[in-house]
Design a protein around this nucleic acid. Sequence first.
DNA 1: GTCTATATAGGGATAGAC
DNA 2: GTCTATCCCTATATAGAC
Lengths: 207, 207
Amino acid sequence: METDTPIVETESHQAADAEDPSATTRARILDISLELFISQGYDKTSLRQIAEQLGFTKAAIYYHFASKADILMALHMQLHDFGREALASLGDDPTPEQWARLLDGLISRMLQQRALFILHERNQAAIEELHRESGALDHEDLQARFRQVLSNKELPADTRVRMACAFGSVMGALALAGDVFADVPSDTLGTMVRSAVSALLPYPSAD
Amino acid sequence: METDTPIVETESHQAADAEDPSATTRARILDISLELFISQGYDKTSLRQIAEQLGFTKAAIYYHFASKADILMALHMQLHDFGREALASLGDDPTPEQWARLLDGLISRMLQQRALFILHERNQAAIEELHRESGALDHEDLQARFRQVLSNKELPADTRVRMACAFGSVMGALALAGDVFADVPSDTLGTMVRSAVSALLPYPSAD
DNA sequence: GTCTATATAGGGATAGAC
DNA sequence: GTCTATCCCTATATAGAC
């Protein structure tokens, strides 16, 4: 399956400086879970299986996470933080120009974090359930924000569709990076996708 | 969730002329399953739940399908047939021009059948497992064919990336049709997506 | 063709020893 | 922080009545 390029990067080690063993274990759990959740799906992945790859048993995981859903939530939050930060620069109804610039600036970091995006694409149902159960905590969600931007009726329909296509282009390339595009260096791929985005949303770049 | 536009169209009623009750029930099972597999995911959807919506019980489903996986397989085959037919016109290593034309001709039918595409996007893991277990029966798979086309090293990398972006654009619009783009008529949406594809792969259309 | 009842298995989660 | 043992629940699938 993923024999060529590893999809999973090292996780952002939360608040751990270097040697905190518990944080390291936590990160290992997230790493392995991310990989399994992508390749097998969240539901088909059992805690027993995760524990097996870690080298210890199912129950040990409960020391680090309250539940299986909690692991998914932690991974979800990594993407959420990524998106929150990215969308912060956008107003309530961004212009397609702003949208193009946003994608342009994000692409290389999206490529680095592509496992998180693929996780979401392939486990939307599980993540939606997560939201339902958590009640919308403080959870102004990324996806909701995303839909809001693309729903903006101030913009002509064809522009909104182009914005969706631009995002779809990025996701399409992302999904194939390290697989069909394993031969293309990440930087190069980023440049090419940026070119595609500007072909879809042809606005002059000011600076 | 899907309160606005129903994602699921009426299924192709296999070999049933009109009144064959068993074929109708079969189609109903597929309809309901498709809807549930998309909204909840394949794994989280139980046969009990499907039967509930049908108005009878779990065991009755086994009269029409040998297993739960069989239902997914039937749905998968609908997309497979769609794709087989579509890709038939392509040679082994199509030019980007042929690719653009293919997408162009396919978009409106893809929009009609978008539930099948979304099913695949959101249940890739389950479908891959299906393939593993079925052994590759006669199964020259759609996805493999797809990767093959985009892996063609005869083409420059940027062209291949553009082809992937074009497909991603279609999928991106597809995923949002009836949701964010519920206000855009299907025909109009199709036209806009076609325009996006030709912006990504700008080749003159001959006929 | 649809039902009830049941066999069987596996997963999530908890308790408590070390 | 990791282990064993166990509880409880739900799911697939089968057998057999109607």
